[in-house]
């Protein structure tokens, strides 16, 4: 499993070989450091913990500093785990740069979407809302019926309703890598990714690769 942590920089557009415009998202990816290696013997499963985002020492707790001191990495504050099937080939303190990916690779991008707060059903689930005229007083953006009456006698779990929208972990699968520049810690993927500019994103090898 290849993966890297990064920050969303923003969106722009590029031209592909045929001259067509491609919308892309720029990610400042890495450098990441291996902060812990987990194996079957030590932890019961295989994984690599990687860290990103250098911060001043005062921003870290003593516990965090102690954990990082084992790997002799810079002071970093974002840690994520990469699962492996078998013992990973990384060793403590290894640096991971954007060149773990190549142009044309398919990746999944995990991030936390922008929070929209408590949103109504029109905004959250694209409900149609009520009629705008014909004597409507308070039904313009109402949800409508919640279901049948005495039978079944309750609202079905999972029905679409107003509630918290966004600020949730979102994975976008199978984005194509458009550009990689490890020197500038640059990773550019086709399409949009979750979260605000500056938001932490986790980029990993696509789990469900599309058939080529």
């Amino acid at each position: 499993m290849r993966g890297i942590l990064g920050k969303k920089v923003g969106m722009t557009q590029l031209f592909d070989e045929s001259g067509a415009v491609v919308p892309v998202t720029v990610i400042e990816a890495g450098p990441c450091y291996v902060t812990q290696v987990k194996t079957d013997e030590t932890d019961g499963y295989c994984a690599v913990q990687i860290g990103y985002e250098e911060v001043p020492e005062r921003k870290l707790t003593k516990g965090e500093r102690g954990h990082l001191s084992k790997a002799q990495t810079p002071n970093i504050r974002r840690l994520r785990e990469l699962r492996f099937e078998e013992a990973p080939q990384y060793t403590l303190g290894d640096e991971i740069k954007a060149d773990v990916f190549q142009e044309g690779d398919f990746v999944d991008v995990v991030g936390v979407s922008k929070g929209k707060g408590f949103a109504g059903a029109v905004k959250r689930h694209n409900f149609r809302g009520g009629p705008k005229t014909h004597g409507q007083s308070d039904r313009h953006r109402a949800t409508g019926s919640r279901g049948a009456g005495t039978t079944p006698g309750h609202t079905f779990p999972g029905s679409k309703a107003p509630g918290q929208m966004g600020n949730a972990r979102v994975t976008i699968q199978n984005l194509k890598v458009a550009l990689v520049d490890a020197e500038r810690n640059l990773l550019v993927v086709r399409g949009a990714i979750p979260g605000p500019k500056g938001g932490l994103v986790f980029v990993r090898e696509a789990v469900k690769k599309p058939k080529s």
Binding site: V9, T12, L14, V26, R184, L186, V188
Partner: peptide, 12 residues
Amino acid sequence: MSNALMASLLPE
């Protein structure tokens, strides 16, 4: 940083 990164991607 971010703006410089974006600008560097501008096509020639």
